[in-house]
Design a protein around this nucleic acid. Structure first.
Length: 446
DNA sequence: TCTGGGGTCCTAGGACCC
DNA sequence: TCTGGGGTCCTAGGACCC
């Protein structure tokens, strides 16, 4: 421990085996296309909650110059003229298709790490590929075909010795139609790899954002090739251990370990913006009640309890009106996922914190200090005659009723809304929950 | 009129302890 | 000139990711 930096310096993780990064192209748009083939070949965007801004674009929409984060109201007037189609986000559908994609991909790996809703790292078996690099490309192509056949969405596969390079390989596969969605760095001449790396700015790299990019540029490090040639120790001194790992990974030394299998979450957030501003305290009580219950349901589904609750609200960052961003953290007397206690705590925490006259556009409820719910995990069947821990049964009861009759079927107190509140989410262009609701199954005629 | 949501990791600094 | 030297835990903030 005496040599500062040596003990915790990033070292090689398991050596040898190639790592694949598989991700779905334009995931949300591709999901919409699975059940609506008329969207194929068209400019399509998927919008955020409240149909606020663009979060996913088809290749055709990208070609129109539409960028992620563009407010919908700015492009909506031109949509018809451009032949642009919008869909509200349908996370039920995307989540379900994601699970199917991940299952198919997983069949091809010695290990799998699902990195996000649309990407997964995959460990390709070690010895198998030593002899023939061509086999790697073959397997990658097989993965593509399998996902296309079993789920119906297009993926790209990048293969390399480290995660950072696999990400980079995937980036190359995406931008070169001739590669047919597959790029294995090992099958390319090193001179060719370097040539590409010298033309891609550092910010195109996984883990290097705008801030770090600007600082690197100031040192004359502009391309990925520049960063690859930098001295890892100097980078660590000037930046951080994170960027040092990136440099090492660029040089083929694996430093980013596999994430733990299904590690427990450390925080759970339920936050939303409103379709109409909230100004009255009673309305905000209602918001807190609904959000706390939604969060509590997530907690229970994860089999976790919270010991700290944080509430937040905020006015628009774009309108010039009075800005106000109240927030409060309160410790809970004991770790809980009980919707009644959490609802009461959330409503109480926000009381008296609103700026009179401010127009709030968003709010959130966050749970932290999470621990395992040893008592039940929320999975057991409801026993209406059970005595004792009555509180947990309320959560189970709500969960069971919602599972059968839908999210809006039941709620507590202010959260038991018969009709949607004026602030609740707007989703004008939503596709059906084709795969998760019996009532919304697609109908096929032959 | 209308601008998303949910996470992670790392670091620095303060409180506290022996 | 020079005010001990670790160590842990917690928190806030920064940066990044999709």
């Amino acid at each position: 421990m005496s040599d500062a930096g040596a003990a915790d310096a990033p070292g090689p993780v398991p050596p040898g085996a190639p790592i694949a990064l598989v991700d779905v192209n334009n995931f949300y748009v591709s999901c919409e296309r699975v059940f609506d083939p008329s969207l194929e070949g068209r400019a399509v965007v998927v919008l955020s909650n409240n149909d606020g801004c663009v979060v996913a674009r088809s290749a055709e929409a990208k070609a129109l110059g539409i960028t992620t984060g563009t407010p919908w109201f700015q492009v909506a007037p031109s949509a018809d003229r451009w032949g642009l189609v919008a869909r509200s986000s349908n996370y039920e559908l995307y989540g379900d298709l994601s699970a199917r994609v991940m299952e198919v991909i997983g069949r091809f790996g010695a290990w799998q790490e699902v990195y996000s809703i649309d990407e997964s790292f995959l460990g390709l078996a070690p010895g198998e590929f030593r002899r023939a690099e061509a086999r790697v490309v073959e397997v990658a192509a097989t993965i593509r075909e399998a996902v296309a056949r079993h789920v119906g969405v297009p993926v790209c596969v990048g293969v390399a010795p480290t995660k950072t390079l696999a990400k980079f390989a995937n980036h190359i596969a995406k931008r070169n139609a001739g590669m047919r969605g597959v790029c294995s760095l090992g099958s390319m001449p090193d001179a060719e790899v370097r040539r590409i790396q010298s033309r891609v700015p550092v910010t195109g790299l996984w883990g290097v954002g705008a801030r770090t990019g600007a600082r690197l540029n100031a040192l004359g490090i502009e391309s990925i090739a520049d960063l690859r040639a930098a001295d890892p120790l100097a980078i660590r001194k000037r930046f951080s251990v994170v960027l040092q790992r990136t440099v090492l990974e660029l040089n083929g030394v694996p430093c980013i370990p596999q994430a733990d299998e299904r590690a427990d979450k450390q925080q759970i957030v339920f936050s939303r913006s409103f379709s109409a501003p909230v100004t009255r305290a009673e309305e905000m009580d209602q918001v807190m009640a609904v959000y706390a219950q939604r969060g509590a349901a997530r907690l229970a589904a994860q089999g976790q309890r919270a010991s700290v609750l944080t509430v937040t609200a905020g006015t628009s960052r774009f309108s010039g009106g009075a800005a106000s961003f109240p927030s409060a953290s309160v410790p809970l007397p004991e770790p809980t996922n009980d919707p009644i206690r959490l609802t009461k705590a959330a409503v109480a925490a926000m009381r008296g914190r609103l700026e009179p006259g401010a127009a709030y556009l968003r709010a959130g409820v966050m749970f932290s200090g999470l621990s395992r719910d040893v008592a039940g995990g929320g999975q057991e069947l409801l026993d209406v005659f059970a005595t004792g821990d009555g509180d947990r049964n309320v959560g189970d009861l709500l969960g069971n009723v919602r599972a059968k009759f839908g999210e809006a079927a039941i709620g507590l107190g202010q959260g038991g809304l018969a009709a949607p509140a004026s602030w609740s989410m707007k989703r004008e262009f939503s596709s059906p929950k084709y795969t998760t609701e019996w009532a919304e199954l697609p109908v096929v005629r032959a």
